[in-house]
Protein backbone atom coordinates (compact mmCIF):
# COMPACT_ATOMS: atom_id res chain seq x y z
CA UNK A 1 0.00 0.00 0.00
CA UNK A 2 1.43 3.35 -1.07
CA UNK A 3 0.45 6.90 -0.23
CA UNK A 4 -1.02 7.27 -3.75
CA UNK A 5 -3.42 4.42 -2.99
CA UNK A 6 -4.62 6.16 0.17
CA UNK A 7 -5.06 9.44 -1.74
CA UNK A 8 -7.08 7.55 -4.35
CA UNK A 9 -9.39 6.15 -1.65
CA UNK A 10 -9.85 9.63 -0.19
CA UNK A 11 -11.19 10.69 -3.60
CA UNK A 12 -14.31 8.73 -2.63
CA UNK A 13 -14.93 10.85 0.47
CA UNK A 14 -17.10 13.85 -0.30
CA UNK A 15 -17.92 17.00 1.57
CA UNK A 16 -21.23 16.45 3.40
CA UNK A 17 -22.51 19.94 2.49
CA UNK A 18 -21.18 20.12 -1.08
CA UNK A 19 -21.35 16.48 -2.20
CA UNK A 20 -19.83 17.12 -5.65
CA UNK A 21 -16.50 17.95 -4.03
CA UNK A 22 -14.19 15.35 -2.58
CA UNK A 23 -12.13 16.20 0.48
CA UNK A 24 -9.11 16.12 -1.84
CA UNK A 25 -10.65 18.62 -4.31
CA UNK A 26 -11.45 20.87 -1.39
CA UNK A 27 -7.87 20.88 -0.14
CA UNK A 28 -9.00 19.74 3.30
CA UNK A 29 -6.67 16.72 3.28
CA UNK A 30 -3.18 18.11 3.75
CA UNK A 31 -1.05 15.00 4.11
CA UNK A 32 -1.11 11.23 4.26
CA UNK A 33 1.57 9.56 6.38
CA UNK A 34 2.54 5.94 6.80
CA UNK A 35 2.59 4.79 10.44
CA UNK A 36 2.77 0.99 10.26
CA UNK A 37 1.31 -1.79 8.13
CA UNK A 38 -2.37 -0.98 7.49
CA UNK A 39 -2.20 2.01 9.78
CA UNK A 40 -1.96 5.53 8.40
CA UNK A 41 -2.19 9.08 9.62
CA UNK A 42 -4.29 11.61 7.74
CA UNK A 43 -3.78 15.33 8.32
CA UNK A 44 -6.82 17.52 7.68
CA UNK A 45 -7.51 21.23 8.12
CA UNK A 46 -10.88 22.97 8.56
CA UNK A 47 -12.21 25.44 6.01
CA UNK A 48 -13.70 27.54 8.84
CA UNK A 49 -12.97 27.13 12.56
CA UNK A 50 -16.60 26.38 13.36
CA UNK A 51 -17.25 24.19 10.33
CA UNK A 52 -19.64 21.51 11.61
CA UNK A 53 -18.74 19.20 8.72
CA UNK A 54 -15.26 18.43 10.07
CA UNK A 55 -16.38 15.67 12.42
CA UNK A 56 -18.44 14.06 9.67
CA UNK A 57 -15.49 14.26 7.29
CA UNK A 58 -13.26 12.61 9.90
CA UNK A 59 -15.76 9.78 10.40
CA UNK A 60 -16.22 9.36 6.64
CA UNK A 61 -12.47 9.10 6.08
CA UNK A 62 -12.19 6.42 8.78
CA UNK A 63 -15.16 4.52 7.36
CA UNK A 64 -13.82 4.60 3.80
CA UNK A 65 -10.39 3.28 4.78
CA UNK A 66 -11.89 0.71 7.13
CA UNK A 67 -13.37 -0.93 4.03
CA UNK A 68 -9.80 -1.77 2.96
CA UNK A 69 -8.97 -2.88 6.52
CA UNK A 70 -6.88 0.19 7.09
CA UNK A 71 -7.05 2.02 10.39
CA UNK A 72 -6.26 5.72 10.56
CA UNK A 73 -5.54 8.48 12.98
CA UNK A 74 -7.00 11.74 11.78
CA UNK A 75 -5.20 14.83 12.97
CA UNK A 76 -6.70 18.30 12.65
CA UNK A 77 -4.24 21.13 12.06
CA UNK A 78 -4.92 24.86 11.80
CA UNK A 79 -1.66 25.94 10.26
CA UNK A 80 -1.11 26.75 7.47
CA UNK A 81 -4.64 28.14 7.36
CA UNK A 82 -6.91 26.83 4.64
CA UNK A 83 -7.42 29.08 1.65
CA UNK A 84 -9.69 28.81 -1.38
CA UNK A 85 -6.48 28.74 -3.47
CA UNK A 86 -6.22 25.08 -2.47
CA UNK A 87 -9.43 24.19 -4.24
CA UNK A 88 -8.39 22.07 -7.23
CA UNK A 89 -9.14 23.07 -10.84
CA UNK A 90 -11.25 19.97 -11.09
CA UNK A 91 -13.08 21.03 -7.93
CA UNK A 92 -13.80 24.48 -9.39
CA UNK A 93 -15.28 22.94 -12.53
CA UNK A 94 -17.44 20.54 -10.50
CA UNK A 95 -18.71 23.38 -8.31
CA UNK A 96 -19.80 25.41 -11.31
CA UNK A 97 -21.56 22.45 -12.91
CA UNK A 98 -23.34 21.88 -9.60
CA UNK A 99 -24.66 25.47 -9.63
CA UNK A 100 -22.23 27.07 -7.19
CA UNK A 101 -19.94 29.81 -8.51
CA UNK A 102 -16.35 28.90 -7.56
CA UNK A 103 -14.18 31.49 -5.75
CA UNK A 104 -13.21 34.35 -8.07
CA UNK A 105 -10.06 36.36 -7.78
CA UNK A 106 -11.42 39.22 -5.72
CA UNK A 107 -8.38 41.37 -6.46
CA UNK A 108 -7.93 44.02 -3.83
CA UNK A 109 -8.38 42.36 -0.44
CA UNK A 110 -9.22 45.54 1.41
CA UNK A 111 -11.37 44.62 4.35
CA UNK A 112 -14.02 47.22 4.05
CA UNK A 113 -15.98 48.44 1.06
CA UNK A 114 -13.34 47.20 -1.33
CA UNK A 115 -14.09 47.13 -5.02
CA UNK A 116 -16.98 44.73 -5.51
CA UNK A 117 -15.84 41.55 -7.24
CA UNK A 118 -17.66 40.33 -10.34
CA UNK A 119 -19.38 37.06 -9.49
CA UNK A 120 -20.80 35.37 -12.60
CA UNK A 121 -24.06 33.41 -12.53
CA UNK A 122 -23.28 29.67 -12.68
CA UNK A 123 -26.37 29.02 -14.81
CA UNK A 124 -26.64 31.70 -17.53
CA UNK A 125 -23.02 32.94 -17.07
CA UNK A 126 -24.15 36.56 -16.88
CA UNK A 127 -21.84 38.90 -15.00
CA UNK A 128 -24.78 41.08 -14.05
CA UNK A 129 -25.41 39.73 -10.54
CA UNK A 130 -25.93 41.16 -7.08
CA UNK A 131 -24.91 40.22 -3.56
CA UNK A 132 -27.84 39.26 -1.34
CA UNK A 133 -25.80 38.32 1.73
CA UNK A 134 -22.15 37.66 2.59
CA UNK A 135 -23.38 34.73 4.64
CA UNK A 136 -25.03 31.86 2.80
CA UNK A 137 -26.32 28.38 3.55
CA UNK A 138 -22.92 27.29 4.94
CA UNK A 139 -19.98 29.22 6.39
CA UNK A 140 -18.05 28.95 3.11
CA UNK A 141 -20.73 30.39 0.84
CA UNK A 142 -22.29 33.79 0.10
CA UNK A 143 -25.73 34.30 -1.37
CA UNK A 144 -26.12 36.03 -4.77
CA UNK A 145 -28.85 36.55 -7.32
CA UNK A 146 -28.57 36.91 -11.09
CA UNK A 147 -30.10 40.12 -12.46
CA UNK A 148 -30.59 38.56 -15.91
CA UNK A 149 -32.01 35.09 -15.34
CA UNK A 150 -33.17 35.99 -11.78
CA UNK A 151 -31.81 32.74 -10.39
CA UNK A 152 -30.59 32.93 -6.79
CA UNK A 153 -27.29 31.08 -6.36
CA UNK A 154 -24.51 30.24 -3.95
CA UNK A 155 -21.03 31.65 -4.33
CA UNK A 156 -18.16 29.73 -2.74
CA UNK A 157 -16.55 32.78 -1.21
CA UNK A 158 -12.94 33.65 -1.47
CA UNK A 159 -10.94 33.06 1.70
CA UNK A 160 -7.30 34.12 1.66
Amino acid sequence: MKAEDIWAMLEDVTDPEVPVLTVVDLGVVRDVQFVSKDHWKIIITPTYTGCPAMQVIEEDIKARLAKENITVDVELVLSPAWTTDWLSQDGRRKLEEYGITPPQDEGDKSVLFGKKPVIPCPLCKSKNTRLISQFGSTACKAHYQCNDCQEPFDYFKCLK
Binding site: Y48, T49, G50, C51, P52, L78, Q134, F135, G136, A139
Partner: peptide
Protein backbone atom coordinates in the same frame (compact mmCIF):
# COMPACT_ATOMS: atom_id res chain seq x y z
CA UNK B 1 -33.99 35.32 6.49
CA UNK B 2 -30.59 36.50 5.21
CA UNK B 3 -29.78 38.12 8.54
CA UNK B 4 -31.00 35.13 10.50
CA UNK B 5 -28.45 33.12 8.52
CA UNK B 6 -25.72 35.76 8.76
CA UNK B 7 -25.94 36.15 12.54
CA UNK B 8 -25.92 32.41 13.13
CA UNK B 9 -23.01 31.99 10.69
CA UNK B 10 -21.04 34.52 12.71
CA UNK B 11 -22.11 32.72 15.87
CA UNK B 12 -20.73 29.49 14.46
CA UNK B 13 -17.39 31.13 13.62
CA UNK B 14 -17.14 32.51 17.15
CA UNK B 15 -17.92 29.17 18.76
CA UNK B 16 -15.35 27.54 16.46
CA UNK B 17 -12.74 30.06 17.55
CA UNK B 18 -13.68 29.52 21.20
CA UNK B 19 -13.21 25.76 20.76
CA UNK B 20 -9.66 26.24 19.47
Amino acid sequence: LEEDIALTNISLDLIGQATE
